[in-house]
Design a protein around this nucleic acid. Sequence first.
RNA 1: GCAGGGAUGGCGGAGUGGUCAAACGCACCAGACUGUAAAUCUGGCAUCUUACGAUUACGGGGGUUCGAGUCCCUCUCCCUGCA
Length: 370
Amino acid sequence: MKKIIDTLHGTIQTPAFLPDATYGAIKSLSFEDVEATGTESLVTTTLHLEQKLDHRYIKEFGGLHKFFNWNKPILTDSGGYQVFSLIYRNPNKRNAITDAGCSFVDYTSGKYQLLTPEISQIIQFHLGADIVTVLDVPLRNDASTADMKEAIKRNTEWAKRSKDKFLELHQLTEKDFSDPKIKRPLIGAVIQGGNNFDLRKQSAEELQEIGFDLYNFGGPPIHKEKNWYQNAPKGFNRELLEFVANLLPQDSVKYAMGIGSPDDIIYSSQVGWDIFDTVLPTRNARHGYLYVSKGYGDKSYEHYDVVHIRSKRYEFDEQPIDPLTPCDITKNISRAYLRHLIRTKDPAGWRIASIHNLMFYQNMIKQLQK
RNA sequence: GCAGGGAUGGCGGAGUGGUCAAACGCACCAGACUGUAAAUCUGGCAUCUUACGAUUACGGGGGUUCGAGUCCCUCUCCCUGCA
């Protein structure tokens, strides 16, 4: 079901793919570049941005849109996923998750920090986001059922507190919240429950009871290994994605966080999810992993091929990256030359590859919008 | 000419009698990455083999030893002092 999401900075047509500007930038790209890829809105994360730029600075400057000079929708993540990832991957005696929130040592500064549902809302409020996210409780992939149940309980409580803070910050009543005439940012809550269908159902029901603008799919649980997927099953549980989408009203906005590969997005879109974000196209671009049309790569997946551009096989390849992904910026660049740029770690190569991959994603999304 | 030091795999550079096909870098080959601690990470990298394994290797030649990249002799080349 195609939807138009109305935000304070324009509309978002779904399905939509939002690239991740984690530290306030899509790495190696200008916002003009980002726009050239057909990107209409983007995601940035509360925690990482806060590490580099205090939200009071952004507030003083005049908000993220002004700071970026980006006048289209911005969705902010709560920092939940990031802080949990940080805590699990960098054990420290002072890291703790309690009902109050997350306290942890920021490994970059050594500073002791606190992130609560309320603080996350305050930060996102001052950033001036169009769509905000509640601080949620992601799970470790080795969590027991008992731990998961507890996490769901806390996740719901935090969502409630987040919404309360949101209403307070915007000086709204619960009645105002449901009034379509009152313009305000949108707020999304995150459905958790790991791979447990019953817990997902419980989580979805409890969050709907509170009432949000968006319902988000909290992706695969946090993995403690450095490579999160080292020992984890590949990809997403498709059955679960369909199941969770069906727990929500058809006309509700559904945001599948962190999803995913082109195949994952196409599938998720077909079963009802509207918004997607993932680092894959941009991070992979910098690593020389390019998404191309079927028949044009060296490795084949369901709906796309991959070009490992650093490979020797492209040494004398004069073709463009993907003839079926037309782009003014990349059309005259041969695979052979891009190979050289990526191999020499030249920022120009990261830029070209990132533009291409985002273009590929946005073209795919445009097909889904038809 | 004399005295001393050194020559190790594509490169740099460990190693001083056995566990050395040789640490560690770099380069090279292949791969991974899903609400970005990711300009990162993982394999491989003498030759033959899918692998087990086998063979040839530490400037050249000769020797000591059960065993030498490691000790001795000699040759070649390079560096540093003294003439």
